[in-house]
Amino acid sequence: MNIIAYLDFNKNELKKVAFEVATLANQIKSQTNANIFAIGINVDTEKANELKDYGIEKLINIKSDLLDKYSSDAIANSLFQFAQSINPDLLIFPANSHGLELAPRIAAKFNAGYVSDVIDLIDDNGNLYFKKPVYAGKSIITTQIKSSVKVISIRPNVFTAKKNPTNSLDIQNFESNISINEVKAKVIDINKNIGKLDVKEADIIVSGGRGMKAAEHFNLIEELASVLGAATGASRAVVDDGWRPHSEQVGQTGKTVSPTLYIACGISGAIQHLAGMSTSKYIFAINKDKDAPIFKVADYGLVGDVFDILPKLTEEIKKIKG
């Protein structure tokens, strides 16, 4: 069995989700004796050494000047050139903004079935089943891919990266021979939200809802988030009211998140919000209404006024953080 593990590793940008993809590939390898081909693009070889901690022994470094700026067509074409040479059985991508564009492209090129946002993989005597949330997590389907080539993307933060050190990393360069005409759309600039963590990537999220009463009160959310090194999130209601940017919205028409800790402040727990955060490992709710639906899914809760509780809570957590 040949597995392609697309790491979304470009130059020296190596994100946590790359180690999660590596971990899953190794998990399958240990069960089926598979060959893993991890993929990076124009990688910094020094940085690539970090992959050794996560069991990667072979990295295919796809090289081309045309791939310096992200372009989903150019990367997909280059990756396909390599993939055809090894007849892959399974291709694993991260379900992030790049992987979600690339994985279905590769699936289309192979006429392969693709399951996105996978949260669990079951190997039943060589038959692979993939679980994925649907309806924003209100339900979960178990699927089977009927084509011989199978493509999946995995939800970040779900497959915990496990250290599994190897002694050597073999980096093989693969020269892509794409032409400039294959770069149909390309990134010309990136605007980062400086100093802000994204809800999709954060271990802890502090979210605020209508109970925060006004946009300016979100400083309480931001202060708590800052002490915890957390991302700030928001309910649909406050995004629709323009209090918070839509990139922070958690729920069915926002982002589905799976942090280690989700802190819901002044959020009652509308069904579409709960769908988006119900896979959080721990949920901590603060709300003045003891009957709010959010408490039904909460591990910990404080019933009371957020304006009274949040400053005290932030102080208490500061004490622990030293």
């Binding site: 399951v115 699927t143 089977q144 891919i145 901590f284 039904k296 909460a298 009371g304």
Partner: peptide
């Protein structure tokens, strides 16, 4: 190319440790 084998509603038991709003409650959580 994809076959759905089954659909299920996720159920996850939660600790449900809910407190009030005193300073002690906050320290507890």
């Amino acid at each position: 190319l994809i076959e759905i084998i089954k659909m299920e509603i996720p159920s996850r038991s939660r600790l449900n440790k809910i407190f009030g709003n005193t300073d002690e409650d906050i320290q507890n959580v």
